Amino acid sequence: MGKVLVLNASYEPLNITNWKRAVILLLKGKAEQLEHYENFIYPTFPFPSVIRLRHYVKVPYKDIPLTRRNILERDRHSCQYCGYRGDQLTLDHILPRSRGGADSWENLVTACVRCNIKKGNRTPKEAHMPLHKSPRKPYSSLHFEIVKCTKDNLNHEWRKYVIGI
């Protein structure tokens, strides 16, 4: 408890804030409460879990940088070939760089050292190593934070407001 998903007036995820900021937005009438926790701040006022702004806020487009950390986050720190989770993870080019493969969201995946060596200078199809899921560019950097906050069935009520988790 303590984290609150903030939705735009269009129900688009906008931010994650703390419960104090969410309560202020609710009391000022700038937001409405859509979901709440079982605990109460006051007998008639439950802790908010999801709030929606009453007026639409235009959000500027922000590109997500292609970094090792972001690739690991997108792939949930697991090998996309065998599912291994651990510290010994590398980045693998689906189409190897030596064959013209680019550094892009769609061409990079997380792989364990064993699978990366086994695949070598081949494509997954040539190596008979299918990917668990096709890589793609994340919707937003907020997506990473929402995935973290909904792990282990935490904040399960957020799932109906977010695509792709």
Rank of each mutant, 00 (worst) to 15 (best):
N121Y: 12
L66E: 10
Y42G: 13
V59R: 14
S98Y: 07
T123V: 04
N121K: 14
N70D: 08
G101L: 09
D103W: 10
R122V: 01
C115K: 00
P48E: 07
E106I: 05
L89D: 01
D103T: 12
T123S: 13
Y61R: 13
G120C: 12
Y61W: 07
I117W: 01
I94E: 01
D75R: 00
C115Y: 05
Y84R: 02
L34G: 13
L72F: 11
E106W: 07
W105H: 10
K62C: 02
K62V: 08
G100R: 05
C79R: 01
Q80V: 00
L89W: 03
C115G: 03
C79V: 06
L91D: 04
V59I: 14
R122T: 10
V109W: 00
L66G: 13
L72T: 03
P48K: 09
P48Q: 11
T90N: 03
S49Y: 06
Y42V: 15
Y42K: 11
Y61L: 14
R99S: 06
I117K: 12
Q88F: 13
L72I: 08
C115F: 04
L89A: 01
L66Y: 14
L53E: 10
Q88E: 05
Q80L: 04
C115M: 05
Y56A: 13
T123F: 08
P65S: 11
A111I: 03
R69L: 15
G120S: 14
N70S: 09
W105C: 06
V59C: 09
L89F: 09
K58Y: 10
R97D: 06
C112Q: 00
T90A: 01
V59G: 13
V109C: 04
R76T: 09
N121F: 11
G83H: 03
E35S: 12
F40Y: 15
G86H: 02
I94Q: 03
V59F: 02
D87N: 11
R97S: 14
R68E: 08
D63Y: 09
L53P: 15
P124V: 00
Y84S: 00
V50T: 13
D63A: 15
R74M: 11
R74T: 07
S104M: 04
D63Q: 10
R85Y: 07
K119P: 04
A111N: 12
A111L: 06
Q80G: 02
K119C: 07
K118F: 02
R114M: 03
K118M: 03
R52M: 05
V109E: 01
L34S: 14
K58I: 09
R114N: 07
C79W: 01
Y37I: 10
Y56T: 09
C115E: 00
W105N: 06
L91M: 10
I64F: 07
F47T: 11
H93D: 03
F47W: 15
C79I: 01
I94T: 02
L89G: 00
H36S: 09
I51A: 05
R76I: 12
I41H: 07
V59S: 13
Y84Q: 02
L89S: 00
G101A: 07
K119H: 09
N39K: 11
L89Y: 02
Y56W: 13
H77L: 12
V113F: 12
